Amino acid sequence: TFVEFNGKKVEYPTPEAAEKAAKKLAKKLNLKVTKKNGNYKLE
């Protein structure tokens, strides 16, 4: 499962880990999380 932000793509071993990381990053970077095709994107 990938988390995409600032043009970077980071892969996580589980969807749970990706979701957790996405939410944490979104909060830190003041972005919102969108889920697309099972992957997460911060914008």
Score class of each variant (00 low, 15 high):
K36Q: 14
L42Y: 03
A22R: 01
G7H: 06
K41A: 11
E43N: 06
E16W: 07
E19N: 07
K35V: 14
A26V: 02
E19H: 11
V10R: 13
K9N: 07
Y12G: 00
E4W: 07
E43W: 10
F2R: 04
E19Q: 09
Y40T: 04
L29T: 04
K35H: 10
T1K: 07
V33S: 02
A26R: 02
N6G: 11
A26M: 04
N39S: 11
V10N: 06
K32A: 08
A21Q: 05
Y40N: 03
N30I: 04
E19R: 11
N37S: 06
K8C: 15
F5V: 08
T34W: 05
N37E: 12
K24R: 14
K20E: 13
L25K: 03
V10Y: 15
L25C: 11
F5D: 00
K23H: 14
G7P: 00
G7R: 05
V3H: 00
V10L: 12
K23V: 12
K35D: 05
P13G: 08
A22Y: 01
K9M: 13
V10H: 09
G38M: 04
K32Q: 09
L31S: 03
K20V: 11
T1I: 13
G7Y: 04
N37T: 04
N30T: 05
A26F: 00
N37R: 05
V3P: 00
N37W: 04
Y40L: 09
P13A: 11
K35W: 11
G7K: 05
A26E: 03
A21W: 07
T34M: 09
E43C: 13
A22Q: 00
F2Q: 04
K35S: 08
K24N: 12
Y40C: 07
A26I: 03
P13Y: 07
V33L: 12
V33D: 00
K28Y: 12
P15E: 11
K9E: 06
K35Y: 14
K32C: 14
L42C: 03
A21V: 07
K24T: 12
K20Q: 12
E11I: 14
V33M: 10
F5P: 01
N39R: 06
A21T: 03
A17T: 08
G38I: 02
L25E: 01
K24P: 00
Y12M: 02
G7E: 05
E11M: 15
K28Q: 12
K9R: 14
K41M: 15
K35G: 06
A21E: 06
N39I: 14
T34G: 05
E19G: 07
P13T: 08
K8S: 09
E11A: 12
E11L: 15
A17R: 07
L42Q: 01
V10G: 02
K27V: 08
A18V: 00
T14M: 03
G7W: 03
A22W: 01
F2L: 07
A18I: 00
N37K: 06
E43V: 13
L29H: 14
N30F: 08
Y12R: 00
Y12F: 11
K24H: 12
E4F: 09
K36M: 14
A17H: 08
L25P: 00
P15S: 09
N6M: 15
T14G: 05
K32F: 06
K36D: 14
N30K: 10
A18P: 00
K24W: 15
E4C: 09
K24C: 15
K24S: 13
F5R: 02
K27M: 10
L25D: 01
K9L: 11
E4I: 10
V3Q: 00
N6F: 14
F5L: 09
A18C: 01
N30V: 04
E4D: 05
A26K: 02
N37A: 08
P15T: 09
T14R: 04
F2T: 10
Y12W: 05
K8I: 13
E16G: 09
Y12T: 00
K27N: 09
L25F: 06
L25R: 01
K32S: 10
F5C: 09
E4H: 04
A26G: 07
K20A: 12
T34K: 08
L29K: 05
A26Q: 03
K35R: 11
N30Y: 06
L25I: 10
V3I: 08
A18Y: 00
N30R: 10
L29D: 03
L42D: 02
T14H: 05
P15W: 10
L42M: 04
V33C: 12
N37Q: 07
N30P: 02
K41F: 15
P15Q: 12
F5K: 01
N39W: 09
K36G: 08
N30G: 15
K35C: 14
E19Y: 15
V33H: 02
N6P: 03
P13M: 08
P13D: 10
Y40V: 05
E16A: 12
T1V: 13
V33W: 07
L25V: 05
K9W: 12
N6K: 08
K24A: 14
T1D: 02
E4A: 03
K28I: 14
E16R: 10
K8T: 11
K20P: 00
K36E: 15
E4M: 07
V3L: 08
T1G: 07
K36H: 14
N6Y: 13
G7F: 05
T34A: 06
K24L: 12
T34P: 00
K35E: 10
E16V: 08
L29Q: 04
K35M: 14
K36T: 14
E4S: 07
L31W: 03
T1M: 07
V3A: 00
A17N: 04
A22P: 01
G38E: 06
V10I: 13
K28H: 13
K35F: 15
A17D: 11
K8R: 13
E43F: 10
Y12C: 03
K20L: 11
Y12D: 00
K23C: 14
K20H: 12
K32D: 05
E43Q: 08
E11D: 07
G38C: 07
K23G: 08
E11S: 14
Y40S: 02
L42I: 12
E4L: 06
K41R: 10
K8G: 06
T1S: 12
E19F: 14
A17W: 06
Y12Q: 00
T14Y: 06
K20I: 11
K32V: 14
